[in-house]
Design a binder for these strands. Structure first.
Length: 265
DNA sequence: CTATTTGTTTATCC
DNA sequence: AGGATAAACAAATA
């Protein structure tokens, strides 16, 4: 599930616990999502440690604790964060849990494609975090930057290009399909083939979809309106909200891609 | 039994 | 160099 907007939502759950002190309660060191986690260090650093901040960037989340301890989290395909009762059991798919004064912070991930990593700094945000590229909905994600990316990677199918996290951090499978559909551009086209008008459309759709998704899904996990491709894309037999004609599901760049042949050129 | 999946990393070949 | 492709990861679901 977790792309840009879903990540914002998950991070907000732990963010609500800012100010509480936490101690590492349980960790499943054998889980794949803990492969980049130093569990011994986590026990040492996350002991009566106050949660001071929570940030997201693309599909990444960062939680800041006192004395420059930072926990980086990626939700992979099936990861989630929740705030649980102190009495709750440690489920088979829970892999990491922090015990606070009135609540438990839980990281869960059945498929274990997610990732937890610990960072230590002198207090400031970690260097890698400060160096992350602009997100598509940031003010610093300018048309110049967008044109630069398209110019340098003109040969890849646009669907694949939009999924590259160093260029479009946070965009995942459904958001890429939504952006291309709104731009009326076929997912197999390349950046090099686009007219100026199409490039403009793609840029605007990119920012619009990211901003709206964060606003709607990021707030409380609401579904976007029926006018979005999102509502029609998940199974075979859907119809395009613009044309009423059938949607198609193809594989592009190794990923399932939903698009509207009657609408996208 | 099979095939599918909202993600990333690594390897290999072109 | 960058792109295409496949595999691997692990588990649920149909």
């Amino acid at each position: 599930m977790p792309e840009l907007a879903e990540v914002v939502f998950h991070a907000s759950k732990w963010r609500a616990a800012i100010g509480q002190r936490f101690t590492l309660d349980q960790v499943n060191g054998a889980a794949r999502c803990c492969r980049t986690l130093d569990t011994k260090l986590a026990k040492e650093l996350l002991a009566k440690s106050t949660l001071e901040g929570a940030w997201t960037h693309g599909k990444l989340m960062l939680f800041g604790f006192e004395n420059g301890t930072y926990l980086e989290a990626h939700l992979g395909m099936t990861g989630s964060l929740r705030v649980a009762e102190l009495s709750e059991d440690f489920d088979r798919h829970d892999h990491f849990r922090l015990r606070g004064e009135s609540a438990m912070l839980v990281f869960r991930d059945p498929r274990q494609f997610g990732r937890l990593t610990l960072h230590r700094t002198d207090g400031d945000l970690p260097e890698f975090w400060k160096a992350l590229p602009p997100q598509p909905h940031d003010a610093t994600f300018t048309k110049d930057r967008f044109d630069g990316i398209l110019g340098r990677r003109g040969k890849a199918p646009l669907k694949s290009l939009l999924l590259q996290q160093d260029a479009f951090p946070g965009i995942g499978n459904w958001m890429a399909d939504e952006i291309l559909w709104r731009s009326r551009i076929r997912p197999t086209r390349t950046a090099a083939e686009l007219s100026d008008d199409e490039r403009n459309k793609l840029f605007e759709a990119c920012r619009w979809v990211c901003r709206e998704a964060v606003r709607i899904i990021g707030a409380d996990y609401s579904d976007p309106p029926k006018s979005w491709l999102f509502q029609h894309r998940w199974s075979d037999g859907g119809t395009c909200p613009q044309t009423g004609k059938p949607l198609v599901r193809d594989e592009v760049g190794g990923r399932t891609t939903c698009w509207s042949p009657a609408w996208q050129r």
